[in-house]
Design a protein around this nucleic acid. Structure first.
Lengths: 117, 117
DNA sequence: GGCTTATATAACCGATAACTTATATGGTGG
DNA sequence: CCACCATATAAGTTATCGGTTATATAAGCC
């Protein structure tokens, strides 16, 4: 399943949003999502499985609970794909990059200056 | 249909990549995608329709051809959603912003300096 | 050990997405 | 006007996804 398919589902997007604030137990996540989407516990569990199996989330056992956390790797991939188009809504991005380069150059120069003394 | 659903399909993603290099006719797009995915002309046409109807592409008639182009708005939305997570794979982004601010400050200072002389 | 609680899995089902083939639309050139 | 392109739409089929209920697993507690 491709990353974009995983993100296609609103429940899964919501789960990721929740996890973005930090680790949550399956139970807590289920609670919230059940209230918002009116779906069953197994339904949520299955969505969590999809997130796990596609690398969007990691799990950690703590007693009887399972604590989920975001794994950003696939999101990064999606972002990488998207960036091809970024110039279309952020035409100043190129300017920003040259700006950054300039900053680095200047800093390097200062450090060099410091060393010489 | 949500933006992420639209991007869930590999053919549609490919079409957007092609359009990212500039306007293309339906025929040109069909040609490429047919070769790469082995699907029929109507299949491609239907994908183009999805892109149109969800605001990812605009069309312009030119004679008997239809020229497609990227409309970035929905891609921007997707990017906006993604950015919530960006700190997880670009922990330097915050640093980058302060960097930028510093750059601006310095440039302003230089201009000021110049003015004084 | 047996009961309870947290979570996952299994099995099934209905909706829908993404093809296919066949056909319509509509501009162009003889 | 007619035949021919380029493109879109229609209708039908199939696979898959996301839900349900029922059940398994496994830790914690008395």
């Amino acid at each position: 399943m491709h990353a974009f398919d995983v993100l296609g589902d609103p429940v899964r997007r919501r789960l990721l949003e929740l996890l973005n604030d930090g680790e949550r137990s399956s139970g807590e996540l289920t609670e919230v999502v059940r209230a918002e989407f009116g779906i069953s516990q197994p339904a949520v569990s299955q969505h969590l499985r999809v997130l796990r199996e596609n690398g969007f989330a990691t799990v950690r056992k703590e007693g009887t609970r399972r604590l989920y956390a975001v794994d950003p790797s696939p999101l990064r991939e999606v972002d990488t794909w998207l960036r091809r188009f970024a110039a279309r809504w952020e035409p100043h991005l190129m300017a920003l990059e040259t700006e950054l380069a300039r900053g680095r150059r200047q800093r390097r120069a200062s450090v060099e200056e410091e060393r010489k003394r």
